[in-house]
Simulated scan of single mutants.
Amino acid sequence: MISIAIQGLRGGVGVSSVVAALGHALQSQGERVLLVDMCPENLLRLHCNQPVADGSGWARATLDGEGWKAWGWSVLPNLHVLPYGRLSEAEQGRLELHLRRTPQLWRSLQASLARSFDWVLFDLPQRLVGHAQIGACDLSIRLLEADPACHALLRQTPLRPQEWLLVNRYDPGCQLQRDLLLVWQQLLGQRLLVQSVHRDTAMREALANKHPVGAHAPGSLAAQDALGLARWCLERRQLPAVVGALLDAESGEGGRS
């Protein structure tokens, strides 16, 4: 099983949409995929046709002392989602404290999932350290947009070892975005994925229809980008040693913008 942690460099960069799109793209290649929402906003489920009013999920089950596996949803054959669930602000705080005190929780859960899935994709929150303690992942992707805010954050945010950067909502018609991408290519080297996810109204339309973009509009640019990202992930599964060597070399040359 390969686990992927996907987190935004800042809030609002479209992590849940990309997680859903990538999960569907991997499933379309014959892989068994589980999407896990670690965010209290509980939005990933809305890409997977779960009723808006349904408040079930792993976080809700954890606080209620119930088994969390019963709350997974089948989206398509071999594509499943594990929602976060609906919690009050106070309950979110309690769960965060619990997860900080038991960092081994998701590590052991990952091990149990290996029997049923080829890929587990984690939608990580921006600020909750405990919620992001999911154990070691095979791939770590930081999502960003080509805008001045992300550029400033890149200059002050240490990159994790062996972490990749993916540009979302890229608009090649925008001069500023083209310029920033050129700067990032020079500063970040191999860490910046060649594959970007282009700005595409199909992404918003897919969420409105409660489906991953590849299921809603398979011919859309965003869906094709997600498929390209899925193929990149499949290649990484075959080349773990090469990937580690590349990123280690980048770290030796600076590793941060």
Rank of each mutant, 00 (worst) to 15 (best):
M1T: 05
A5H: 06
G8W: 08
V13F: 14
V18T: 00
V18G: 09
G23F: 11
L26V: 08
L26S: 02
Q27A: 06
P40A: 06
E41P: 07
R45Q: 11
H47N: 05
A53M: 12
D54C: 08
G57R: 12
W58N: 09
A59F: 10
A59E: 02
R60K: 13
G72R: 11
S74H: 02
S74Q: 10
P83L: 04
E89C: 10
Q92Y: 01
E96R: 09
R101E: 08
P103G: 14
W106Y: 12
S108H: 14
S108C: 14
L109V: 14
Q110S: 15
A111G: 06
L113P: 00
A114E: 12
W119Y: 10
L121N: 06
L128V: 04
H131F: 14
A132N: 15
L143I: 01
H151I: 03
T157C: 02
Q162C: 14
L165T: 01
L166F: 13
D171N: 09
C174I: 13
Q175E: 12
L176A: 14
Q185S: 04
G189L: 09
Q190L: 11
L193I: 03
D200N: 07
A202K: 05
R204V: 13
L207V: 00
A208P: 04
G214E: 01
A215Y: 10
R236W: 07
E253R: 15
E253I: 08
R256N: 05
S257G: 13
